[in-house]
Amino acid sequence: MSPYRRGFKSMLPIAPGIIPFGAVMGTVSADAHLSFFQTVSMNLIVFAGAAQLAAVDLMNHQAAVLVVVATGLIINLRFLLYSAALSPIVQNESFFKKFISAFCVTDQSYAVMTAEQDKFKTNHEAVQFYLGSCLCMMIVWQSSVVAGYIFGNFAPKSLSLDYAIPLSFVALLIPTLKNSKYVMVALFSAVVSLLLYKLPFKTGLIATAILGICFAIFLTRKKAAK
């Protein structure tokens, strides 16, 4: 079996986990009165679920452009880590393959790649495997967003679809709370976000993120000093 196909198949068990999140993205886009073209375009050119969901929510509240973009990019900062891990593998590939590899960096493709890392004979094979898994990820993500968008256009208003955003973020957040320090940072950010909520253009969100990260630095430094 070619590395592309193996990569595609390796993503299949993870794919069902993406579907509800993609469906929420599509539903929320429909709820925000975005056109089908706008929804699909954003999916294709940004291709970053949590950041997209945050962006649609913020745009719906008329947040400042700086806030929308900065928030999305802070959420996407984790891709730097994946990019660093992928970098040595793609160095000898063409510019086009490097670009596509970078563009398709996601939590899921990184996870599949890492799990299979020891099985590749060459970096070229690893890249082919990775691109195969990315294709699967892209198909499942786009399809689930489209399905969610169609549902969102027909769903009754009494379903409170706006609430799917905080619920999705709960589903993203909870698996990352690995110990009490993460829980403390999350509670700290929740309280700060409420205190700063009235700041204009949703700038309280950026302030909360920065303060939350500073608090995390403080908590982890304290441990190192002991």
């Binding site: 949590a50 945050a54 929510d57 928030t71 802070i74 959420i75 900062l77 984790r78 730097l80 880590l81 660093a84 970098s87 040595p88 160095q91 706006d162 609430y163 955003i165 905080p166 973020f169 709960v170 993203l172 957040l173 990352t176 709370l177 690995k178 320090k181 993460y182 829980v183 940072v185 999350a186 509670l187 950010s189 929740a190 309280v191 700060v192 976000s193 409420l194 909520y197 309280g204 969100l205 909360t208 993120a209 303060l211 939350g212 990260i213 608090f215 995390a216 630095i217 982890t220």
Partner: peptide, 28 residues
């Protein structure tokens, strides 16, 4: 390919979801 991210930065990055996602959840 030689660019490396320090362990300290990697550790801080893992706190990003905890730092920003509650700011969407709590006000909503």
């Amino acid at each position: 390919a030689r660019t490396k991210i320090s362990e300290r930065v990697k550790q801080i990055f893992t706190f990003i979801p905890a730092a920003i996602l509650p700011a969407f959840i709590a006000p909503a």
